[in-house]
Amino acid sequence: MNRYLGIGKNLGLALLFGPLLAAGAWAQNNTLDEIARYRAQLQDGNPAELWEARGEDLWKQKRGPKQVSLEQCDLGKGRGVVKGAYAELPRYFADADRVMDLETRLLHCMMTVQGFSKADATRRVFGSGSNRSDFEALAAWITSESRGVVMKVSLNHPKVQRAYELGEKAFYFRGGPHDFSCSTCHAEDNKRIRLQDLPNLTQKKGAQLGYTTWPAYRVSQGELRTFQWRLYDCFRQQRFPELEFASELSIALTTFLAYNANGAAFNAPAIKR
């Protein structure tokens, strides 16, 4: 279904409300109301908690060739400090001389602290059914420890500033057979694809709404998805080649969007259709 519809992925919802589909604006308003009600009902119970619990275990377990737990990992606020860490990412890490988002930092720690090879650590960056991803579980737990914390990404370091500027340019970069860029769908207010509302990520309000609600449990996939996945799948639908996990561009775009979300309370893992 998702693959079939390409960028019109929201039709799943329309089908869910199939009995309501009748001609005319009345039916459409009614359907939009029903979708809003469905979204509100989803908030009651979020299976992301299962990923969070597994992530906390993974964080504390002694793992890898070195048999060390990730509690030795510094997410930016000191070794082992998780509370509020995500609200300040991406940031510059002197030990790697690089700007890193959460997943890139986790990969770095799996390699340097736990001794995993890159190939082993990145074998499954996005989960599928019983083939679970450690990154998704860890990200679920770590981000949950920033819930309610106000987003505060700093551009003070020149490398973070540079990442922001590259991310901004890349946001408007058109390419591929469809001429799409991120901005094709996310640079104007009150636009939709099919019935799916699109946040305007170039405005503070839209960036805050969009960024602070990832990671999210996707009902349509039965998976918890991280921000790396969000970018990866947007580019897939843009008809670009495959975005590399933890690539410099993925970090740059995350920096652009996370900084634009500054000032809002982080509110994830969320649940989305």
Binding site: K169, G175, S247
Partner: peptide, 22 residues
């Protein structure tokens, strides 16, 4: 910039890196 952008993608299926040539 373009070097960074290109190094951040890999060819997959029918989508080659030439799709980034504007």
């Amino acid at each position: 910039d373009l070097n960074i952008i290109k190094a951040s993608f890999r060819a997959q299926g029918q989508a080659g890196l030439d799709r980034l040539d504007q």
